[in-house]
Design a protein around this nucleic acid. Structure first.
Length: 608
RNA sequence: GCCCCCGUAGCUCAGUGGAUAGAGCACCGGCCUCCGGAGCCGGGAGCGCAGGUUCGAGUCCUGCCGGGGGCGCCA
């Protein structure tokens, strides 16, 4: 069964009318005004540092309409229906329109958000079927840092898209087929099944693989056995398949351990390994041949999508079937696309795959379009990402030059988080069990946030001290901001005084999220505006498949909160009404932080 | 050789063609009877180089320089 995330929001009865978010609402109003001047003209609505928003569309329209930009801006201001939202709309400079939202509007929207279980996030009206291809470890091979990015980014995208109401199908394209399995199965035989299983279940996949490799390189007899074993595997020999299954199952059990440690959604049901597509490969080749796309070249069956050339400037082939009749990975990738469109009904396919494979994927997409498998209305996107670099700005490796094992990295993160807590005396009130859980949340969260908060497409420098810092744009900082707000509510629940017994956890919710909100102080207003930006930020992250946009938003929100918190006493507010209003602001901030972090796959502890 | 990505402050990074290019770290100066100071307020410092398109370019185009990646039977 394909995995489904977030389908719940589409169930009858749960679907409810939620007002469009502030940005969308404003954009719609402005669009109507611009349409009257020039149908379809882009208002160019942008956040502004000198107002809440600015509208730049008038300048672009000036030349086209042959009118001064200020006159156009004036016309927009005169005709746009903004009076219920804004307290000031004015033309400035060469023709910008500055928009300042009214306090009444902000108050009303924050109140709606505070009482909305979905925090103002509207389920998309037309859900897509989004297939997310990510993680993709190899059977009988250790997961290393190279798998971190794909797994973490893909996980977050699944969560975000699912939360927005899309039907998400997770696909873990595990490397479980191909010529190396001849060698691996023969090595398994040589070790003896029991010994091999023991070694693999201990998670020592690398030494197993490397030993197989050594035999293959050194021993001609072993090599020949391996080749014959590949043929047996391909032909479906039951005993060979059984041994193959042993390797696969042991590896999957190991992957599950890593996924559990990492805290991602992937389950065994999401595994759609290369072996799954194996039976579909002949028809891929047949269909390409029938469509006249297949070209035999040097014995290999290829498709030459236009626009791709090799080092000599000659057309570059996508090799579908090798000269030895075996299928190349391109065939699998093509079968995969077809399967996702036909069987799963995908309307959007995300490949969370490293940037080196950009050209290969482009070629696959091009061929799939030529063959009609990727039809109109189905988007295939390469969600590309860069390398993780060490402090020397080179690919992260151990001293020995091997790529770092993912489990080692994660264990070190938790260890470092644990000592950071002790150093800062943050663990004094926590029970041992809670201390361990928090250290885990902090360490894993720090690694994930460091990865997710960068522009995917770029390489980033891996730096323990920076990612685990409790200040700056880090996971722990956001978790801290959340924990600090929760602490306010524990105090509020205890009558405004600290709990009598250290270690007592009072799980307090917002006492009254329907209390009237006032935004008299500028820091209160700024926090309200930041809160209302949540839907737009989430939408942008989903549209661009870019979790860093959600990270940037959450960091801005935290900053707005700390400024607010510094200047606006909550529990010590002089008036009861002010105190309750501020509790609503703080409580809503905590909820957005917790939900936002969870959409990144990061836990938000109550205390830390 | 060809193709792709990247080059923004001392460091790590944001910047969907719009006004004076923003953060964090580090540094400097203020604020502590502080609901968690892991903070708040303020400061200095930057778009690799050269052209071009545009009313407007960090953003788009061309060339160059520098870094990374890819380029036929591995995935």
């Amino acid at each position: 069964m394909p995995s489904v995330v977030g389908i719940g929001v589409l169930l009858p009865g749960m679907q409810r009318w939620v007002m469009p978010d502030v940005t969308a609402l404003l954009a719609a109003r402005l669009q109507a005004a611009f349409d009257r001047l020039s149908p379809g003209a882009d208002p160019v609505l942008r956040p502004s540092d000198r107002a809440d928003f600015q509208v730049n569309g008038a300048l672009a329209l000036a030349k086209q309409l042959g009118r001064p930009p200020r006159a156009i801006a004036d016309a927009v201001v005169a005709t746009a229906e903004l009076s219920d939202m804004c307290e000031r709309v004015e033309v400035s400079g060469p023709g910008f329109v500055n928009i300042v939202l009214s306090e009444e509007f902000l108050v009303q929207r924050v109140a709606e958000m505070a009482t909305d279980p979905r925090l103002g996030i509207e389920a998309v009206p037309v859900p897509e079927v989004v297939v997310v291809d990510y993680s993709a470890p190899n059977v009988a091979k250790e997961m290393h840092v190279g798998h971190l990015r794909s797994t973490v980014i893909g996980d977050s995208l699944c969560r975000i898209l699912g939360h927005l109401g899309h039907r998400v199908v997770r696909e873990n394209h595990v490397g479980d087929w191909g010529t190396p399995f001849g060698m691996l199965i023969e090595h398994l035989n040589d070790l003896g099944e029991a010994t091999a299983v023991h070694e693999l279940s201990a998670g020592d996949l690398n030494s197993f693989y490397q030993a197989a490799r050594r035999s293959f390189d050194a021993d001609e007899v072993f090599r020949e056995r391996s080749r014959r074993r590949v043929v047996l595997l391909q032909s479906g020999d039951p005993e060979t398949l059984r041994l193959w299954r042993v390797l696969v199952d042991q590896s999957i059990a190991y992957f599950d351990e890593v996924y559990a440690k990492l805290g991602v959604l992937l389950t065994d049901d999401d595994i759609r390994g290369e072996s799954f597509y194996n039976p579909l490969l002949p028809s891929v080749v047949e269909d390409l041949r029938a469509k006249g796309l297949l070209v035999e070249d040097e014995g290999a069956r290829c498709v030459f999508p236009p626009g791709f050339t090799n080092r000599h400037g000659d057309p570059l082939p996508l090799i579908v079937q090798k000269s030895d009749e075996g299928y190349g990975y391109a065939a699998t990738d093509l079968a995969c696309i077809r399967d996702r469109v036909d069987r799963l009904g995908a309307t959007r396919i995300l490949y969370v795959v490293g940037s080196p494979q950009a050209q290969h994927l482009e070629m696959c997409f091009a061929v799939a379009k030529m063959a009609g498998w990727l039809r109109e209305g189905v988007e295939a996107e390469h969600v590309s990402f860069g390398h993780i670099l060490g402090s020397d700005h080179k690919m992260l490796r151990t001293r020995a030059g091997a790529s770092t094992k993912l489990v080692d990295l994660l264990d070190e993160a938790v260890t470092r988080a644990s000592s950071a807590m002790t150093e800062r005396g943050r663990d004094e009130d926590l029970s041992e069990a809670e201390r361990i859980a928090v250290a885990r949340a902090l360490g894993i969260g720090a690694v994930k946030y460091a990865d997710l908060s960068n522009d995917r497409t770029r390489d980033y420098v891996f730096d323990w001290d920076r990612m685990l810092a409790f200040e700056g744009d880090t996971g722990p900082y956001l978790q801290y901001a959340h924990a600090r707000i929760r602490s306010i509510f524990r105090r509020a629940a205890a009558g405004g005084t600290p709990p009598a017994e250290a270690g007592t956890v009072v799980d307090a919710e917002v006492p009254d999220s329907t209390a009237p909100v006032s935004l008299a102080a500028p820091q209160e207003r700024a926090l309200a505006v930041a809160l209302l930006g949540y839907p737009a930020a989430l939408g942008a992250a989903a549209k661009d498949a870019e979790p860093s946009k959600l990270c940037a938003y959450l960091y801005e929100l935290s900053s707005a909160f700390t400024t607010f918190y510094e200047h606006c006493p909550v529990l010590r507010a002089p008036e009861r009404a002010t105190r309750e209003s501020r509790l609503v602001l703080a409580g809503t901030t905590a909820r957005v932080l917790r939900e936002g972090l969870s959409l990144l796959g990061i836990e938000a502890p109550e205390r830390m």
